[in-house]
Every structure is written in structure tokens, then in C-alpha cells.
């Protein structure tokens, strides 16, 4: 089997921009096999700058029509739930079930009051899924 390094050497004469595309059809055979562990299908809207690799936070619509925005700590990926705020007059795309799951920060608009503990608890559950009990304990939100 060809090693990744050998393959890369062979591809080097290509322009660098082509390099990533190569990976699209490069089969990596020795990756680990893991069970499917998708557990959280509840609707989170990821808030991300256009062209950026990472979201800056999430928006989550509640059934009563309120939508909350919570930033994410960049390096750790932790939800900064203490900074969760309600979005004043939330944009339709943040409320609609059919809109894109990634929305730009402009859609957040004006932020209002801080989320009360019940809301914070719910946001943690939505984001962390099965890990939520542990996070809630850490944040003293139980």
C-alpha cells in the first residue's frame, strides 16, 4: 500500500490549490472504525462568519417563539452559556425549521436580556446531548 507521504510526494508537482482536492478521492484505509454515535438531532443554528472555518456561536429557537444566542469559546469549543442572551426580534431564518443550519452573524441583530437559569439549562442540554448532566453539574445549573 502506498503511504500518505509517498502519495504526497507524487502530488507535489500539482499547484497547491489542487492539493486539497486530491484528498477528496484519496482513500485512507487505516482509519479506525467507530460506531455511529449521533445522538442529538435537535435544531441548532450555527452562527458563522462567511468563509470562516468555525462558528462563533449558536442560536436556538424555543417553542414559545423566543430565540437565544450563545457564543462558543474558540479554542475549547465550550458553550459560553453564562453569556447566553435573548435575540430581540429574531430573524425568520433563526426561527424557521426549513432555513439553512448555518447563518451569518448579521442575522442575530440586537441582543436583549441574559438567559435565565432554566433557559441556560435547556441550552446546555440541547448542545451537549448525553454529556449535558456532567456539564450542568460543572456549571452548577442542576
Amino acid at each position: 500500500m502506498l503511504s500518505i507521504a509517498t502519495l504526497l510526494n507524487d502530488f507535489m508537482p500539482l499547484p497547491r490549490i489542487e492539493f486539497g482536492k486530491i484528498w477528496s478521492w484519496l482513500k485512507v484505509n487505516d482509519k479506525p472504525v467507530r460506531p455511529e454515535d449521533r445522538v442529538n438531532e435537535r435544531r441548532i443554528i450555527w452562527i458563522r462568519e462567511r468563509g470562516e472555518n468555525l462558528p462563533k456561536g449558536i442560536a436556538y429557537p424555543f417553542s414559545d417563539g423566543r430565540v437565544f444566542y450563545v457564543p462558543i469559546a474558540e479554542a475549547s469549543g465550550k458553550l459560553l452559556v453564562r453569556k447566553a442572551k435573548e435575540i430581540v426580534n429574531p430573524h425568520e431564518d433563526l426561527k424557521s425549521e426549513s432555513s439553512e443550519r448555518i447563518q451569518p452573524p448579521e442575522k442575530i441583530g440586537e441582543l436583549g436580556s441574559m438567559a435565565e437559569p432554566d433557559v441556560q439549562r435547556c441550552l446546555v442540554e440541547v448542545y451537549y446531548g448525553k454529556k449535558a448532566p456532567q456539564i450542568l453539574t460543572e456549571l452548577a445549573l442542576v
Binding site: N40, R42, G51, L54, I102, K131
Partner: peptide, 16 residues
């Protein structure tokens, strides 16, 4: 072609 899109689409990975 953005890294996050790959992981968002990845069905093996949970939301958190």
C-alpha cells in the same frame, strides 16, 4: 470546502 462543513455533515459526530 470549509472544515466545519465537513464535520457538520459527518453523521458519526454528535452536535456537541
Amino acid at each position: 470546502k470549509v472544515t466545519f462543513d465537513y464535520f457538520l455533515a459527518n453523521p458519526l459526530i454528535s452536535a456537541d
